[in-house]
Design a binder for these strands. Structure first.
Lengths: 152, 152
DNA sequence: TTATAGATGATACACTGTCTCATTATGATC
DNA sequence: GATCATAATGAGACAGTGTATCATCTATAA
């Protein structure tokens, strides 16, 4: 069961209103980065988009990809998922069920599980600090079933 | 209220048994990295330890620091905390109150807030998957007060 | 003593993300 | 359409992080 709480044009509107309220324009480069991000499945990294957008007829530079990703992030179109490695990981919000990740510290595989709104406990605390929450992620770490079996 | 669920020699034993079961020796370099990691407060990055250990009379190289940190990680003496930037962050397990982080996507500063056991909702789900939970972290991202004020 | 295996440091390296700057595009106003 | 101000872009330089290599050193066992 996939919840279509968002649709693409809704996401696009988010971007547009973010751009407008910051005096920015919906340029061709931004549009392409938006399309690439929305068109992705699962996670992607900035560098993956860079490579992807270098292949296209209408090429987009690294600088633009990084800049646009930051905007998409602030606009709430994508969110950052924090894994323990050196890349920034993103995933888009559209058509995704909110979910979290549990990662195995041995094989680095991860499993996803649905969001159950556990974050509500913390929201008042952060808001009191003046922190504007754009999103959150639960990150469990441990040993996955395969690695446990392998050991015993 | 600080929970002393661990003590230093216990952590040291963890390291020793890890080394032994992997045919490694408790060398002077490893011992120094261990001391530095355990002696730290809050988070630290690999590079911070590198700088710290370069100042000491008994100098330790970058390569050794990175190697040893990986071992401490697998031994369970330190854990990785996932921020969205390009550094690996660590913190040691000994003598720490469980807490979480909210990070600003503009200035990368973060605030900490105490753990409120929100994870209990998810534990049954993960256990059913055969995942052995070693720990978890909540990671909020957004805009901090300073950066919000700066904009308006 | 010798042999073996691990430990180390120096260094080269690849990669990620940031920054600058000169150039180009955009769009509003006249 | 011409002009002007402002934003957008790409190229490339750059700094920082983490990895890999390799020759040398150390420790331990035989």
């Amino acid at each position: 069961m996939i919840r279509h709480s968002h649709n693409i044009s809704e996401e696009h509107s988010k971007l547009e209103s973010y751009l407008q309220s910051n005096g920015l324009k919906l340029s061709f480069g931004r549009e392409l980065v938006f399309q690439a991000a929305i068109g992705s499945h699962g996670h992607f990294t900035a560098e993956e988009l860079v490579k992807l957008l270098k292949k296209q007829p209408q090429r987009v530079s690294r600088a633009t990809v990084y800049r646009s990703l930051k905007e998409l992030l602030e606009a709430g179109v994508i969110r950052e998922t924090a894994f323990g490695d050196k890349h920034h990981h993103f995933e888009h919000v559209y058509d995704e069920d909110p979910h979290h990740h549990a990662q195995c510290i041995r094989c680095h595989s991860f499993i996803e599980f649905p969001d159950l709104k556990e974050d509500t406990v913390y929201r008042p605390i952060l808001e009191k600090e003046g922190f504007k929450i754009l999103g959150h992620e639960m990150h469990f770490y441990g040993i996955c079933r395969k690695c446990r079996d392998r050991n015993s």
